[in-house]
Structures are given as C-alpha cells and as structure tokens.
C-alpha cells in the first residue's frame, strides 16, 4: 500500500469520494497541504484603513511563497495556487484574492477532478475512457476499489489513535502519527484541532524529531494552521467564495462611486483616459 504521507489530501479524497467530493474541499485541502509543506506561507498583518474621518485596523492574512517553493515538485492541480508565484515570486497575495485566483484557475469542477486523478500516484486506481473523460465520470477500477477500502480503514485507525494520543497528551506519538498522515490529517473526522494545537513547540523542535521534520519538509509552525483551518475564518473564506462566486460579478457592485468631504460633489463621471500616458512629474 502507498504510504499515506505520499498521498495528497485531494488525491485521498478523490479515491474515497470520487465525483461526490466537493470542489471546495478539494481546493481547501490542497491549499492547506501546501501550507503544511511550506511551499506557501501564511503571514498575518495588521492593516490600517481610512474609515470616514478616522482609521480602523484590520487583521489580514497574506500568502507568500515558502522556503520549499523552489524545490517543490508540484502536481498540476496544485498549480492553481502556485502559478502566480512562479510568474511573480515576490508577490504577497491577500488570502481571499489567492482563493479567487484558485477558483478562476479551476475552470470547471470536472476538469479539476480530472487533473487530480491523472496524477501519477493515483492514476492507476481509476478507469479511463473517452466517454468517462467527456462526461467527467470518475470510476475506480478493481485495484482502486480495493485500495479505497484499505485507505478508509487506515484513516479510521489513525483517527482513533491520534485522538487518543492527543487526549492522553502523548505528544510524541501524536507527532509521529501526524508525520505519517501528512496533509491527510485534514480528512480525519474525530480529530480535535484545538488539542492538536496544544502540541508543544518545544517537542516539535526537539533534536530527535527535527531530522524527521526536515526530511518531511514540514515545520513546527505549520501545525498552527492545521488548528486554524478548522476553527473559523479559513473555512468560512472558502465557504463564502463558494456561495458568492456566482453573484460576485453582479452589476450592483460596479455601479457607483461617491465623493467624500473634499473633492467633487457629484461623484465622478469617468475621465477621458489616455492612450499612452505621459508618465509622471
């Protein structure tokens, strides 16, 4: 059986759920897996905005390329988030904007699923034919079906072992299990992410584990985002995108502009534009 840590969570989900897997989840787990592997990093920043006559502060999450970006061999479906950084490596993207980039790059759910199952690690488990490709049907072959059963059992087993290890505060075992699971930890049903967050950073930094971490390209602060992923805004950002993406372009949004306390009283009516701007002074 393929090692769990070799399977990316979106691949695991495609084996387990096939065409019933939600696009939002496939995208979300792909994103989280890339954060976990430090291919991309999440940075929190406080922004100050002019609001009326005063200022307001707002926490914002930025995504930048991570230390493993340059050496990471990305699968084509992961490129929905990475291609921007290939073209502009120094870019700092607001989290919600990068999610939009991802949604735009997906094009259609069927195409995205196809990209995932065509990945060499799992392509062997799926039946491929012109008709299936045309209609976006995902069907496991007999080897794939057998693998799915094994995978399901294995994940259930990890689920119970990891929960116990966290409840019993056996952090070393928990960490060992996490390393074996890789990004598939997001797929566990019973995991308490708050308990997971309680893993002591000092344990993660201990010498005997450091080597494993390095070899697995993981780093201790990535686990913070593991916990974060299930507790709030992270999920809701994907949710709101999924809910609002169709109405996003509604004509309402683009309709108006207004003046504030100085400047024109009638808003603005569009400048004449220019064709070849004269630069600046």
């Amino acid at each position: 059986m393929i090692q769990l840590s070799k399977l990316k969570p979106a691949e695991t989900l495609m084996i387990l759920e096939g065409s019933k897997s939600e696009l939002k989840n496939l995208m979300k787990y792909t994103f989280m897996d890339l954060v976990l592997k430090k291919v991309i990093l999440v940075k929190e920043t406080t922004l100050t905005y002019k609001s009326g006559r005063g200022y307001r502060e707002q926490q914002s999450k930025y995504i930048i390329k991570g230390p493993n970006f340059d050496n990471y061999k990305a699968s084509s479906f992961e490129e929905i988030y990475l291609s921007t950084f290939h073209k502009s490596p120094e870019l700092k993207a607001i989290f919600s904007k990068l999610i939009k980039v991802g949604y735009e790059a997906v094009v259609t759910e069927k195409k995205f699923r196809k990209k995932i199952i065509d990945n060499e690690t799992i392509a062997q488990f799926f039946t491929s034919s012109l008709i299936y490709n045309l209609f976006g049907i995902v069907i496991l072959n007999s080897v794939g079906y057998e693998f799915k059963l094994q995978l399901k059992n294995k994940l259930d087993d990890y689920d119970s072992k990891l929960s116990k290890a966290l409840v019993n505060k056996n952090h070393e075992l928990a960490l060992q299990l996490l390393l074996e699971l890789g990004g598939n930890v997001f797929l566990l049903k019973n995991i308490d992410f708050e308990l997971l967050q309680a893993i002591d950073i000092s344990i993660l930094q201990s010498e005997n584990l450091k080597e494993q971490f390095d070899s697995n390209r993981y780093d201790y602060d990535s686990w913070y985002y593991l916990a974060y992923s299930d507790t709030g805004s992270f999920n809701s950002s994907f949710d709101s995108w999924d809910d609002n993406s169709s109405s996003f372009d509604s004509s309402y949004h683009a309709a108006g502009c207004s003046s504030t306390d100085s400047g024109c009283s009638s808003g603005c009516s569009g400048c004449g534009g220019c064709s070849g701007c004269g630069g600046c002074s």
């Binding site: 291609s83 921007t84 073209k87 980039v101 735009e104 790059a105």
Partner: peptide, 9 residues
C-alpha cells in the same frame, strides 16, 4: 485575478 495581483505589484 492572477493578472490583476501581478499588475498591481
């Protein structure tokens, strides 16, 4: 959006 973010940079 990808092009926009890059153009802003």
């Amino acid at each position: 959006m990808e092009f926009c973010l890059r153009a802003i940079l």
